[in-house]
Amino acid sequence: MEDFIVAAVKVVIAFALLFMVVLLIVWAERRIVAFMQNRLGPTRAGPFGILQTLADGMKLLFKESLTPRNAEVFLYLAAPVMALLPALLIFLVIPIGAPITIGDTTYTLQVTDLNVGVLYVLALSSMAVYAITLAGWASGSKYPLLGSVRAAAQMISYEAAIGLALVPVIMFAGTTSIAGIVEAQGATYFGFLPAWNIVLLPSFVVFVIAAFAETNRAPFDLVEAEQEIVGGFHTEYSGFRFALFFLAEYINLFTMSALTVTFFLGGWNGPTFGPTWLVWILPVIWFFVKTFAIIFLFIWVRGTLPRMRYDQLMAFGWKRLIPVSLAWIILAMIAMGIRRYGLPWA
């Protein structure tokens, strides 16, 4: 029973955290992109305009939710929920801080640690494509359909790249449990360099690029390219249903950044010192500092790079990212073999 209560509390905290972080990210994105474009962005609602997202959300709640006459009503209504579910579920396996020991019970700052954590993440992120594909198809309108066909092809292609980029990470950690991968990065090289998986640089680069495509963000935002296909898959959505898609998109952005940090930047690992409460808090702070640094990278790229053409996107995914990841897996295997068994001629 106690386990159940602890789990329930963790789930509630995790979801509350996600929604609050999304408010912050949307505001941060609008402000940062505005500064990059020599504008100010939202400044009116609350200090520095930080409540702007809340105001927009309230506004969307009161707007009319339209359903097109040609829509397949059931799937049209189900798609926004299908978008939100995997986005929320992936976050459950990400540890946001070091385990805390109170009395003789240890609480992990992670809703649950799965033996197959990495596969769980990949499986759920492959579910995200359904929402977009079905939303576009069920809208019964041509631009959403174009957007959703693009989404299906793009997300399948880049999922493969994400999976391959994670293979060396799993090999180095020797486990697919996400807590295990973070702990494996807790060691140091030469006593001071943190042993983060960033040393697997090609994997890191492939993962981050593919993450841009998986979250449908610039320069891979062909799914909702405003200049070509109006709004892509969410053209026909309005009001609260549009808000759900928007929410899912930004939760995905946060989760992908958190996953990048977890897999490659050491997760919550970082220097800790001081009294016990500080030792508990610091890993959480390190985790969020790193995650927001990656989110800043996402926003920066959006403010900098133009959108790719569709054939460039496909060619880049299949002919660059996937061969590079395959070659890198072989190199990493050789390196691990040498480390374990020595050089073949020695």
Binding site: M127, T133, L145
Partner: peptide
């Protein structure tokens, strides 16, 4: 758990997405 994850990853994730893609095409 492994089989469950692979079931979703391969069948629900890859195979069915391709089905859907082909149906739409």
């Amino acid at each position: 758990h492994f089989v469950a994850a692979v079931q979703i990853l391969v069948y629900a994730g890859a195979v069915m997405t391709l089905f859907l893609f082909v149906i739409m095409m």
